[in-house]
Structure formats: structure tokens, C-alpha cells
């Protein structure tokens, strides 16, 4: 399987497909360039195992290291709180998508519309459709999918990764390389 094939075989999109993230440093660079990034954490993040931690643990690290505000979808907020992360905004994923797509949205903290949405941990087809909505309706917003299954509608997506490679990529983004400067959130 190519790393740029949609994980669900039939979920092909069209001419505009996401670029595969081959170097985690690229994600860091994109985050650093963003003025108003947001991290959407879906419910599956709480149950997906990545070696000795859950996916949600890496995502919390990402939010803290890069100071990215979090939208908790599904009911993942409980898992966030269990880990001491208490500042997430709770919102259904499609509602978050609609607001991100609005170029006049005041943003999570009133500082302007979102220009980077990092999405992870949702059911594959739901994340697929949500990213499609943003691809078409939010030209002002870049998107990144951090699941280990290729999402063709993101601007950038991890490819179809083994757990080991996924862990290495996430670790590289969240721990081993510090951001060069905080994003304006």
C-alpha cells in the first residue's frame, strides 16, 4: 500500500489531494508560521494505543509544547481532564468545522479566524468529510491530519504509518524538537 492511498480504499477525493508528511519538522514549521492554529482532538484519540501511551497523550503534548488551543470533540474532554488538561473548548466536530470555515469567525479566544486546523482522532470517514468541508470552504485555513491513516482531503497528512513510525513522527513533533517561537494564540 502506498503511503498516499486513502486508508479506506473507496474514500478517494478528487484532483486536490493532501501532501504526505514525510518529515515531522515540516509540521513544526507550519505550526510556527500559523497565527491562529487550533487542534481538534477526536474521541478515538483516547482509546488508540501508541506503544505505551495513548494517542491523546501525544496530542496534549503537542498542544502544550506549541501552545495550541484545543477543541475537544465527541466526549474526549474527559480523557483530557483525566490527564490534567482542562482548557479545551468542547464542540461537535462539524460545528467546529463550520466556524473554522468562516473567515469572519472571531476564533476561540477572540483573536481572529483560524488559519491552521490540526485534526486527529476522529472516526476515519467523519474526519474525511470534515476535512473535505474545510478543503472547499476554508481557503484561509490549512489543515493537517495526524492520524496514522492517510487523509486525502487535508493540506498535509501523515501517510499510512506503522505504529512505530507513527510514534516516531509524533514524538519528533511534540518532544524532540521545540518550537522556534510560540504561535500567537
Amino acid at each position: 500500500m502506498s503511503s498516499a492511498e486513502p486508508w479506506q480504499t473507496a474514500e478517494v477525493s478528487g484532483p486536490k489531494k493532501s501532501a504526505v508528511i514525510t518529515k515531522p519538522a515540516m509540521v513544526r514549521a507550519v505550526i510556527n508560521r500559523a497565527r491562529h492554529p487550533v487542534l481538534l482532538i477526536g474521541n478515538r484519540a483516547a482509546s488508540l494505543d501508541i506503544v505505551e501511551k495513548k494517542f491523546v497523550d501525544y496530542l496534549i503534548d503537542l498542544a502544550l509544547v506549541h501552545k495550541i488551543p484545543v477543541i475537544a470533540t465527541g466526549h474526549v474532554n474527559k480523557a483530557l481532564r483525566d490527564r490534567g488538561y482542562t482548557s479545551a473548548i468542547i464542540m461537535p466536530a462539524v460545528e467546529a468545522g463550520q466556524r473554522i470555515a468562516d473567515p469572519l469567525w472571531h476564533g476561540l479566544h477572540g483573536r481572529g479566524p483560524c488559519d491552521l486546523a490540526i485534526i486527529a482522532g476522529m472516526p476515519y470517514p467523519m474526519e474525511w468529510t470534515l476535512l473535505s468541508g474545510l478543503k472547499h470552504a476554508a481557503p484561509h485555513t490549512k489543515t493537517i491530519s495526524l492520524d496514522n491513516t492517510y487523509q486525502p482531503n487535508a493540506t498535509w497528512s501523515f501517510g499510512n504509518l506503522s505504529i512505530k513510525d507513527w510514534q516516531e513522527h509524533l514524538t519528533a513533533i511534540t518532544v524532540e524538537t521545540a518550537p522556534e517561537g510560540p504561535a500567537d494564540v
Binding site: V94, S132, H136
Partner: peptide
Amino acid sequence: YQPFYMPFCDL
């Protein structure tokens, strides 16, 4: 209640 479209295909 405004539509938020999530196309199933680009075409």
C-alpha cells in the same frame, strides 16, 4: 441554520 457542506467528491 446555514448549510455547512462537506463534499463527498471534488467533482
